[in-house]
Amino acid sequence: MHIQEWLESVPAIAVYLLVAGVIGLESLGIPLPGEIVLVSATLLAASQDHINPYVLGACAVAGAIVGDSLGYLIGRKGGKPLLDWLGRKFPKHFGPHHVATAEKAFTKWGMWAVFIGRFIALLRIFAGPLAGVLKMPYWKFLIANVLGGIAWAGGTVALIYTVGKVAEEWIGKFSYIGLAVAVLFGIGSFVVMRIKAKKAAEAAEQEPAESASVAAAD
C-alpha cells in the first residue's frame, strides 16, 4: 500500500482520541510527549482532508483542560505523598530539584504559572497536581487552566497547520525548494518557541540559588 493511501486510511476518530488521550495523561502528571503528538497530528491534518483541524484543536484543548483538572483533584487529595511517589517513579521529571523549581514558580506567579506552564515542558506536567498540592483556589486554577489550554493547544494547531498547508502549496509549485523553505520555517518557529521556554525555566531555576547565596552572605 502506498504511504498516501495508508495515511488516508487512518480513521480521524483514532487521531482525535490519541491526541486527547496523550495530552490529557501528560496534563494529569504522567510524562508523555504531548507536544510531539499534537504537532505530528496537526501535520497529518494539513495533508489529509478527512482530519478536521478544528475538531483536532478542540480535542487537544479538551484533553489539556480535563487532564489538568484531574491532576489538580489528585494533588489536592494526595498532597506531598503524591509528589514523593512521583519522584520515585519518574526521578528525571519529578526529582526534588524539579519540585523545588516548580514550587518556586507557583509561589511567584500564581495563576500565571498554570497559564505559562502550558508552554514549558516541566510546568506542563506539574501544573495540575502541584496546584492541588499547594491548595490553589479551584476557580483561579480553572480560569488559568482553560485559557492556557486554549492558547497552547489552539495556538499550536493553528501555527503548525498553517505551516503544513503552506508546505503543501510550495511543494506543488517549487518542488524541493518549496519543501526546504517550508521545513526550515517550521523548524525555526519551533526552535524559537523552545528557546523562550528554556530561558523561562532557567530563570526560575536560578532564583532559588541566588536567594540562597544572599542568605549565606547575610
Rank of each mutant, 00 (worst) to 15 (best):
F115H: 02
L123F: 03
A58K: 07
F115R: 04
L122E: 07
R124H: 14
M111N: 14
A127I: 05
D68A: 12
L122T: 12
G75F: 02
S69N: 01
A121C: 10
L83E: 06
P96L: 07
S69E: 02
G117A: 06
I65W: 00
L56M: 05
R124P: 06
A100Y: 06
K104Q: 10
R88E: 14
V114C: 08
S69C: 03
Y72W: 04
L56N: 03
G128E: 02
H98W: 06
G79M: 04
A100Q: 10
R118H: 09
R76T: 05
V61T: 02
G128L: 04
L122R: 06
D68V: 10
P96N: 13
K89C: 09
C59S: 06
G95D: 01
G117E: 08
W112M: 15
K108R: 15
L86M: 14
L83K: 02
I116V: 15
W109N: 13
I120L: 13
F90D: 13
G128M: 03
A100T: 09
V99F: 08
A102W: 11
K108I: 09
A100L: 10
T107M: 08
S69A: 03
G95M: 03
I116T: 08
K89W: 04
V61E: 00
G95S: 05
K108Y: 07
G57Y: 11
A127W: 11
